[in-house]
Design a binder for these strands. Structure first.
Lengths: 210, 210
DNA sequence: TTTTCCCTCACGAATTTGCGGGATGGAATG
DNA sequence: CATTCCATCCCGCAAATTCGTGAGGGAAAA
């Protein structure tokens, strides 16, 4: 029986969720709070919690800010954000803060229960609109590449520079002379419009070249 | 009635899918092929297709390579990848190529039907393990941040290094002496565990410090 | 077949970096 | 008040870099 902790300020929705969870068979909801603060006060580090269902628009500490706190208190728990917010900044912040899943209150209760179980199996349940948003953000980075074409050797050189190797070490790694690496680096400078190693590495990383 | 096009080389699975789709109420599967080539030959630009279910491990053209072709033929169709591959490179390639969703054959048939409908509503159905993989890639920055605390000056220095400035220029930009910048850089090296500028810039960018 | 890339290698010089030593003053913290 | 941290500054030398200016060979394209 996996323990679910509920943090949700709407009493009705909280009760409905608790009821659904307790009636699901393999899940139990012994803990339910209406704010992050109440949760942190009402539990100790030893409290057994496998899953946290977290609303974001809470009185007091905002849900996103609470994710790190909850992580500290329950290092092994999976955190599923369950909210009405589907705006990009909030979603990305929550996921960056360490949420394991993101569903919307508009999702059916069965979807939520399925999401909890997916999380327990190592998955990351995402509402499909949220997923679309993430994919859009994901792909928005790559295509903005102003067709800078590096050769194979140049890419290899750049990658090793990014690992902190100096030219001599790169020469050894690639099995060529120092001078060759130097030439590659110069060509990279030309293509990337920079004049030193750190600038090249920075620009290459910004462009997703390495 | 939305039209679904099936591209899947396993006959049994293809038949089962077709049967499920046709029996779902709002979906119909009039087109079913066992390869990309067969699909492109068997349809014209005018063929009405709302959703394409695409396997990846196909005879002939690989599914990932076929995504752009299918996009060209059916610009308005949603493409749902449905495969056994759950390896990162394949998944990311497929999504970058323009897939609208990614489910696994291990997913229940109901999940697939639900996924199709979610896509038609503008969502991006992702198997939760796939979603986890994407999230991990997405913020591969955040988790590996073992509380590296840079001072304000160190961050400024790092940021200017990332713009390609050399130490002397940074000194001028910050209005301090070359030696001061040099000291900051040394302290950065210590904190980031690197020994040269390019390594520092690379690590700082990986950690999301700049 | 000429041209064009790419990879390879080389020398030399001026400049920059990396790092070993320092030092001072201010602010915060116990 | 002592300590710690931060920001600032300095010297010197070995090492690494930047950059001008070459060159040869192979592969692919024109």
């Amino acid at each position: 029986m996996k323990q679910v902790c509920l943090i949700e300020d709407h009493q009705d929705y909280r009760r409905a969720l608790k009821h659904a969870i307790d009636g699901s068979g393999n899940l139990a909801c012994k803990l339910a709070f209406s704010s992050i603060e109440a949760c942190l006060e009402g539990t100790g580090p030893g409290t057994g919690v496998d899953v946290i269902l977290l609303d974001l628009g809470l009185p007091g500490m905002h849900g996103v800010a609470g994710i790190p706190e909850l992580r500290k208190r329950f290092p092994d728990a999976k955190i599923l954000v369950l909210t009405v917010y589907d705006h990009k900044p909030v979603v990305l912040e929550a996921l960056a803060a360490g949420a394991n899943g993101y569903l919307l209150k508009a999702d059916h209760i069965d979807t939520i229960l399925r999401g909890i179980n997916e999380m327990l199996e190592g998955g990351a349940p995402l509402n499909s609109h949220i997923a679309r948003m993430i994919l859009a953000t994901f792909n928005a980075v790559a295509p903005a590449r102003p067709d800078i074409e590096l050769t194979e050797r140049e890419r290899e050189t750049l990658a090793l520079l990014g690992k902190g190797l100096i030219k001599k070490e790169i020469a050894d790694a690639l099995g060529v002379s120092y001078h060759t690496v130097d030439t590659h680096v110069r060509n990279i400078y030309g293509k990337l419009q920079v004049h030193n190693l750190s600038g090249a590495v920075a620009k290459a990383m910004q462009l997703g070249l390495i």
